[in-house]
Computed example of a mutant assay.
Amino acid sequence: MFKRYAIYYTPEPGTPLADFGARWLGWDSAGGVACAHPDIGDLDVAAVTETPRKYGFHGTIKPPFRLSEGQTADALKAALAVLCSDATAVSLDGLALARLGRFLALVPSGDASSLGVLAARAVQELDVFRAPPTDTELAKRRGANLSAAQDAYLVRWGYPYVLDQFRFHLTLSGKLDKPTITRVETALAPALAEFELSPYRIDGLTLLGEDENGLFHQIRRYALTG
């Protein structure tokens, strides 16, 4: 039994990008195992990736939530399967390495509105499974200086960065100071250049569960077949 669930985009297990992401972060959510970090220059990859490690390599679609009273994991699986059977795969111009504030991520190139529509469907159609956030959780989120719209989304949907505030990204680091983020960016760019990221296809959604140690495990990946 997992304490929280999440719906993410994760690259198909066994593909080069999925394998790199697992090794880079040090956690393979598909296999449920820790991974040795790659040797990239003199970077302390473990320190750079400490914050996002537990989630595995992913792009958030519906952020972690506790199951609401009366709901079950099996019912959540069934509902996600129905959604993915009706939703179509999303084609992006590509993914590119970018700075998002103080952290690094892969972000979509070009128009990503169709991905926003998919994420909005997951947030809204599966919301019946989400227990409301606690006062502590609300206070923690509000510490990020939310806008009025983001605060309203936090109250309604349990997370501030949804719907028109959604920005898809595959996280590659925690918050870094300026010298470190420059070094990591310089080291990552040639490593990522080895992968076919343009164009890029979002072809499935993954249900994950958080274990008692805070690590996320892939439960099932559902193809988008609508």
Rank of each mutant, 00 (worst) to 15 (best):
T225M: 06
A46T: 10
C35H: 12
L97K: 00
Y161K: 03
G14Y: 06
E196V: 14
L176Q: 08
L43R: 02
C35N: 02
G41V: 11
A46P: 09
A47V: 05
A105V: 01
Q124M: 15
Y5G: 05
V82E: 07
G158R: 11
P13C: 08
C35S: 10
G158F: 03
S198D: 05
A152R: 09
A78D: 12
G41E: 08
L163R: 01
L43S: 06
G21K: 00
V48A: 03
S113L: 13
Q165H: 15
A87W: 01
E12V: 11
H58V: 06
A89Q: 06
L83H: 12
F166T: 08
A122S: 12
R23K: 08
L118R: 10
Q165E: 15
V155L: 14
S198E: 15
G41L: 04
W157K: 04
T49Q: 04
T171L: 04
E137D: 13
A149V: 08
D177K: 05
Y8N: 00
D28P: 12
D127K: 00
A144R: 14
I181Q: 10
A98N: 04
L197W: 03
A119L: 07
V128Q: 14
V82H: 14
V117A: 13
V128L: 15
E196W: 10
P199N: 12
P133L: 13
V117Q: 08
K140E: 13
T182G: 14
L205H: 08
D39E: 13
L67N: 14
L215F: 14
G31A: 06
D93I: 01
G59M: 05
I202M: 12
D164A: 01
L126E: 11
A148H: 10
E194T: 14
T171S: 09
T88Q: 13
A87C: 15
P108E: 04
S68G: 15
D203S: 08
L207Y: 03
A131H: 02
T225P: 01
V155C: 13
N145S: 13
H58Y: 10
E185P: 06
D19V: 14
L126Y: 06
L17A: 06
T182P: 02
L100H: 07
V117L: 13
S29F: 00
P199H: 05
R130Q: 07
L17S: 02
A191Q: 15
D44P: 11
I61Q: 10
A79W: 03
A30P: 09
R53C: 05
H169V: 10
G116L: 01
L138V: 11
D74I: 10
A148N: 11
I219V: 11
P179G: 07
A47G: 12
Y5D: 05
L188I: 11
P52D: 03
S68I: 10
R66S: 15
A96W: 00
T51Q: 08
L138T: 04
P133F: 07
F57I: 07
A223F: 07
G226N: 03
L170F: 12
A22E: 09
V48L: 01
V123A: 03
E50V: 09
E69G: 12
R167Q: 12
V45M: 05
N213C: 05
D135G: 09
P16I: 04
R156P: 00
